[in-house]
Amino acid sequence: MNQLQNNKILAKKFYAERNITKAMYFYLKAYSCEGGNKDKELILDIALLYDEMGQLEKAKEKFKEIITLDPLEERGYYGMAIVYDNRRQFSKAVEFYKKAIEINPNYNRAYFFMAGAYDAIGKQDEAIEAYKKVIELNEHDFWAHLNLGAIYEERNENQLALKEIEKSLEIEPYDYLALFNKGVVLKKLNRIEEAKKAYLQSIDENDEYSYTYLNLAVIYKEEDNLKMAIKTISKGILKRPEEGFLYYNRGCFYNSLGCVIEAIEDLKKCIEIYTPFIKYIRKDKELRNLMNNGEFKAFIDSIDSHEEEE
C-alpha cells in the first residue's frame, strides 16, 4: 500500500509540473501495485490523462474499467461520453451523457456537453433544454448563456438570443465573443448603431478576431460608406494578414469604389492564401467587370491550369 500511495503522490507531483510522460509512468506503476487495479480514483486519473494525451482508445478502456468496478459511478459514463465527443461521435456521446445524468440528475457538466453534442447533430430543441438545465443548476454559467444565445440566433429567435447574450455579459462584461455575438443579433434587429458599438467594444477586448472587422465593415458598406468599410477591414488585415477572406472583401469594396488596381491586388492576395476563392470570384456578380481585365483573367486562368496539372 505504501508503494501504491508513493507512486500516486509522485504521479500527481509530475502532473502538477506538467511533466505528462513521467506522471503517466508513475500512475501506471501505481496501477501495477497490489490493489491498484481496484483503485477507482487512480483509474480515473489514468483515464483522464490518456484523454488529455489524445490516446482515446486507452482512455476508453480505463473508463470501462471504472464502470465495471462501479456501475453507479457517473464519472465513468461521463468520461466515455467525452471520448466519443472528442471523436465527433456525438450520438454515441449523448447516450453516455444520459447514463451519467440518470445516476446524478444534477450533473451540470454532463448537461452542458450533452447540449453541445445535441447541437452538433442538429437537435437544437434538445440542446436548448440541456442548456436551460445547466442554467437552472448554475445561473452564472457564462458559456451556457452564450451558447444558448447562439442557438437562438441561428434559429432567428433574435429577442431570445439577445436576452441570453446580455445575461452572459452580466457575468463576463468584457468578453469579446459575447460582444461580437451581441453585435450580430443587434444588426439582425436593425439596431445598427448599437451593433456598431458592440463590434467596436469587441475589438477593444480582442483586436485579433478577424470576423469582427468583417462584420463591422459590411455595416459601413451597406451604409454606402465604402471608405470607412475599407479603413475598418484594413485594420483587420494589419492584425490578421493570413486571413484570405479579409482581402477578398476589401477587394470587393475597392471594386465598388472604382479602385480596380487595388481590387485586383487584394483578390490576387486572397487567391494566393486560399486558391478556392477563385470559384467565388468567378460567380460574384459584383466582380464581373474584373473578369474582363486581361491581366487579372490571365492570372486566374494560370492558377486554374496549374491546379489541373497537379
Rank of each mutant, 00 (worst) to 15 (best):
K12A: 11
K13F: 13
F14M: 09
I20G: 09
M24E: 12
M24Q: 14
F26W: 07
K38E: 14
K38L: 08
L44M: 07
D45L: 11
A47V: 03
D51C: 06
E57D: 15
K62Q: 15
F63G: 00
L69W: 02
G79N: 02
I82T: 11
D85T: 13
R87M: 14
Q89G: 01
F90P: 04
S91Y: 06
K98H: 11
N108S: 12
F112D: 10
M114K: 07
A120D: 14
D125S: 15
D125F: 12
D125L: 15
A130H: 07
K133P: 09
L146S: 15
L148R: 04
A150L: 10
A150H: 09
E154Q: 09
E154A: 10
E157T: 09
E157I: 10
E157K: 12
L160C: 09
A161Y: 06
I171F: 02
Y174D: 15
A178F: 14
G183H: 04
N190H: 10
A198Q: 12
A198C: 05
A198D: 11
Y199P: 07
I203C: 12
I203Q: 07
D204S: 14
N206R: 14
L216F: 08
L216Q: 10
V218A: 04
N225A: 15
I230F: 09
E242W: 05
N249D: 07
C252R: 08
N255K: 02
C259A: 07
E265C: 02
T275G: 06
Y280G: 13
I281Y: 02
K283D: 13
E286S: 15
L290G: 06
I300N: 09
S302W: 07
S305H: 11
E307P: 01
